[in-house]
Design a protein around this nucleic acid. Structure first.
Lengths: 256, 256
DNA sequence: CCATACACCGTACGATGTACCAAGTATTTC
DNA sequence: GAAATACTTGGTACATCGTACGGTGTATGG
């Protein structure tokens, strides 16, 4: 009738979970866990897997030595768990960002990018979490504050400051995703890069006319060589970051 | 959250499927379908859903009026199907890219970005497909060739040409992903943006001290206003693209 | 003509997230 | 002290997923 019973996806509860401000009940049995314990266990499993696909509520419960359904006392759903995991590792990233003592905003942006890169490398599942709503946990907000700090007062509007941070994130996340996803494919299939090309190469050669795609063939081979030499993520990361910074410099100089 | 890894089976077969070069058997019953029909049906369903989560083999089979397991005659796995879907819509994107008749490489990059944006808006699931291996379908390669064409001969190395195209893709995909993922959250929860903030807002205000995060609060509110005014994806898209282009210009000018 | 090689697809298996409910426990109220 | 209350715990169950397996029927090559 008038009221909706399901508390699934209740925004207020999700926010309260993130901030650890859910009221503790005064009656009933003692809690055998905390939300933080659940989140930490999940992070540990995801770190080990380097993947979110195999992170199941059952495995988290098993790791904690409780029944699967007991987790739902501490977290409303798997989606909420993912949000909480993200906020948790963002806290770590803020610590590693350190004090904002950069001589220039360029240095600041480089350290923002580096912190993002480290985050993705230490927790190789964060690029798999998609939050439909802005992440409003304490650590995510703290991270955002720190990041915005490096572009404060350099001549950008508020909306542009947000856009710059987002731009850096998208670049770093893209490079990290390609790196991690490639590893994941190798791990999942048990087929290494070299073996994969040995198997797919002949088929491709039989079917692809290099003359029809001259640039793609040439550039693809160059990129492949760089990849095999292990210099691809590094170069892509640095090259992209340099372009972003120079693009922002151009805007600021034009305005000055 | 939704991360789908594709490309996990027999490499040679996967490539052959993409190129439509699998040999047809000479004995046995007639085929009632083609691989292309399966792929088209899957694309249609994913387009309708604007999501890959609910794309199941059962639904594809039902749409085609065949048994679920019959699909496996034409496609090795769901992952291979995702790869084939991606290559299929890349073909569409190449058509829409049109002839490479741009006066400047800047215009060229803008049209590459625009084509990418259109692709993500017309098929709001492509950002959910993660290929662990490079996508080697005919249309993906054709798209790559066209894209590289706009930065050919402007003073970049081969590896840099690849990096530039990737940079533009990551930016466009990031903006598109945020846009689509927000819609998806609304659709999945049945809770609109406004309603969500009405529910989560009080909890957040009770817990977040604006003085502790002054820049985040100010910038977040500005970004929120822009978002509500519907100008956020547009602005982020244009702003980011401008920065990228100017960053590349800076590199080229320095070398000239 | 029939052995062969295949297409079709029903059934089954091991996963998943989580709804529901019975049973047990601590606190509050009388 | 007893009863009512408000919890936690976690077993069971359900819908849904990708796909392995194998039976059945069909077109073709020898």
């Amino acid at each position: 009738m008038a009221t909706e019973i399901s508390n699934v996806g209740d925004p207020a509860r999700s926010v309260a979970t993130l901030w650890g401000t859910r009221r503790l009940p005064r009656r009933g049995p003692r809690h055998s866990l905390t939300t933080a314990q659940v989140v930490d266990a999940a992070v540990e499993i995801a770190d080990g897997d380097q993947d979110l696909d195999r992170l199941s509520m059952r495995r988290v419960a098993q790791a904690l030595g409780v029944g699967t359904m007991s987790l739902y006392t501490y977290i409303a759903s798997r989606d909420d768990l993912l949000d909480a995991m993200l906020d948790s590792v963002h806290g770590e990233a803020v610590e590693r960002l350190g004090e904002p003592d950069h001589a220039t905003w360029q240095d600041g942006l480089r350290s923002v990018a580096r912190a993002g890169w480290d985050l993705h490398m230490r927790h190789r599942w964060v690029m798999q979490v998609f939050t439909g709503r802005p992440p409003l946990g304490p650590h995510s907000i703290a991270k955002y504050e720190r990041e915005l700090g490096v572009v404060e007062g350099i001549g950008l509007t508020d909306v542009e400051m947000d856009a710059v941070i987002t731009l850096v994130h998208d670049h770093v996340e893209g490079v990290a995703r390609r790196r991690v996803e490639a590893d994941r494919a190798v791990r999942r299939t048990g087929i290494g890069d070299e073996e994969w090309w040995r198997a797919a190469g002949p088929e491709l050669e039989a079917v692809l006319d290099p003359a029809a795609f001259p640039i793609a063939t040439r550039v693809g081979e160059a990129a492949g060589r760089a990849h095999r030499a292990g210099q691809n993520p590094e170069h892509a990361y640095e090259f992209g970051l340099d372009r972003l910074i120079q693009g922002i410099e151009a805007l600021i100089h034009r305005r000055a």
